[in-house]
Amino acid sequence: MSQEILVLCPFGLDAGLLSKAAELLPGRVRAFVPAREQAEAALYGANIIHTLNCGEIVDEAALADLLAEKLKLWGSSIVLAPATIRMRNLMPMLAWKLDAGLTADCTALEMAGSDLVQTRPAFGNSLMASIRSLSRIQMATVRPGLFRPAARPNPKAEIIPESCHIREQRLRHVAFQPFSQGKPLSQAGIIVAGGMGVGSKEGFRKLSVLAEKLGAGLAASRSAVDAGFAPYRCQVGMTGVTVCPRLYIAVGISGAVQHLAGMSGSEKIVAINSDPKAPIFGYADYGIVGDWETVIDQLLKEELS
């Protein structure tokens, strides 16, 4: 049976994931993207592009229904999606309808014959599990922004416009209140994170200014969140978000196991701490032993000039 990967990005393209799909099964990649991202999908290796042209979709269950019908026609054998909050809700609904096994938040994918081997961390990052699907259709969500986009221009990609008619509005959109602080952590290339060592809300304000200047995300350890220095959505670790930026700057963070679980996948880790014995230094690529405020103030000054 011929294999095909469907990359589902109805709320926004993950170019890295699409590139990965094109690397796994060259020439057999179907993408489902918002119409505005058609050109980008062709650039990153999609052979067939379904462009979705409709207003805001509120009910992910309704979209899952629609996709389940479409998939019967398309016959894709592998379905991948970025593990964003909305897609992590939609994919389980779709998996149930397709009688498919689904693996969450994978950090590596490879083909073994016709099997997709899905690797994901469990228990924070303490165990890495390799998982295979036992169903005809193999499904996985993949940590967003994990794979680097690699251009594979496909000027002859077939474009198929899709409309969606969602009949019953069981859910209605009422309002959207955007967060004031910069980038979502899961998509940030740089993260500035603070711990108890930062000492106060004012300290975090300083980190927040720096994060904004650097185009970085602002994160916090659990104890800093518990102390009220930063809101819960900034929490990185076992009971918060898991992140894998290119550069993670840990400021005044001691390095509890629970925190390490959420950030040890970062490409580069820099630790700034006045305690030379802080465990975080062991897990960092570079450490600065000293007063965090001196370092941050100096960085801010350089950024401003």
Binding site: L127, A129, S130
Partner: peptide, 13 residues
């Protein structure tokens, strides 16, 4: 179950 864990390794951190 429709998924099967085929290998597991400790990898932390």
């Amino acid at each position: 179950s429709l998924t099967k864990v085929t290998a597991m390794e400790s990898k932390f951190p």
